[in-house]
Design a protein around this nucleic acid. Structure first.
Length: 258
DNA sequence: ATGCCTGTTCTACC
DNA sequence: CGGTAGAACAGGCA
């Protein structure tokens, strides 16, 4: 998926239907609903309602209606949004080629436009009135205090950052980029950070999210080329270390990141 | 053919 | 309880 930045682009594109009335929703593949919601129930909850806002929390896009119901969309690895035939992110690095409208999983027709969620792998999911209390504070506005409480666990630092219940929105690329910029080793016990390091990391995460957002996505980090090539640290030239941390392939500079 | 991938969730196990 | 590892989900690409 789409990490927070890509979901934010989807949110912005989807927001063109704010003010429109939902005329129909279709779920061509019932498996996309998982067991979280029934197609008929979803349709009944959304049909004839007006879209009053499209929001985002972490990697979840929220379509809010005046009927009191909110639709939550998780994009997982290869989910994309197409609004009136236009794609906010034409090419997703690990997704299908841009312009590919095969594999529609959810189509919401409104008087202000049509939103289609495409996801060939079906790893994404739809949720009616999702429980947002399960999500941590959004990474884009993370404060030092929020980060500190997110790190109160006996886990590697990176595993804590990827845990959406602790910090919402960071994925594998943003996490590695932020840790590299903050010069903190991903395998450090999360509890070990001193106040100075917590301040540095919180500030770096917010700045990294903002800068990569301006550049165009999670894949625009300074570490990305070296990551793809399994190369060297762009700052000091030390070969990057590779390991699995928090269940994901992790790259870091063994000299600078402590 | 094999294995990897911007993710989540489940089970088994310690 | 808190934590980890691996599989599953499933498609495309090197």
């Amino acid at each position: 998926m789409p990490e927070l930045l890509e979901v934010e682009a989807y949110r912005r594109a989807t927001a063109v239907v704010v003010g429109g009335v939902i005329t129909a929703v279709q779920c061509p593949d019932p498996r996309f609903l998982r067991r979280t919601v029934d197609a008929a129930e979803l349709s009944a909850a959304l049909a004839d309602a007006a879209v009053v806002a499209v929001e985002r929390r972490g990697k979840v896009m929220l379509v809010c209606t005046d009927a009191g119901h909110t639709l939550g969309v998780r994009f997982a690895m290869t989910g994309r949004v197409i609004v009136d035939g236009h794609e906010p992110i034409p090419e997703l690095k690990y997704g299908p080629r841009g312009g590919d409208t095969a594999s529609p999983r959810f189509i919401m027709s409104t008087t202000a436009g049509t939103v289609t969620v495409v996801d060939p792998r079906r790893l994404g999911s739809l949720h009616l009135d999702p429980d947002l209390t399960q999500l941590g504070p959004d990474a884009s506005t993370l404060s030092v205090a929020e980060l500190r409480s997110a790190l109160e666990c006996r886990r590697p630092l990176k595993a804590a950052l990827l845990d959406q219940g602790r910090v919402a929105g960071l994925g594998n690329l943003l996490a590695d980029e932020s840790l590299w910029r903050a010069r903190l080793a991903p395998g450090r016990p999360a509890l070990d950070l001193d106040m100075d390091e917590e301040r540095r990391l919180a500030r770096t995460i917010v700045a990294t999210v903002a800068q990569l957002g301006r550049r165009g996505g999670s894949h625009t980090g300074d570490l990305q080329a070296a990551r793809d090539a399994r190369g060297a640290c762009p700052r000091c030239g030390t070969p990057l270390q590779v390991a699995r941390i928090g269940g994901r392939t992790t790259l870091w500079c063994p000299v600078e990141q402590r």
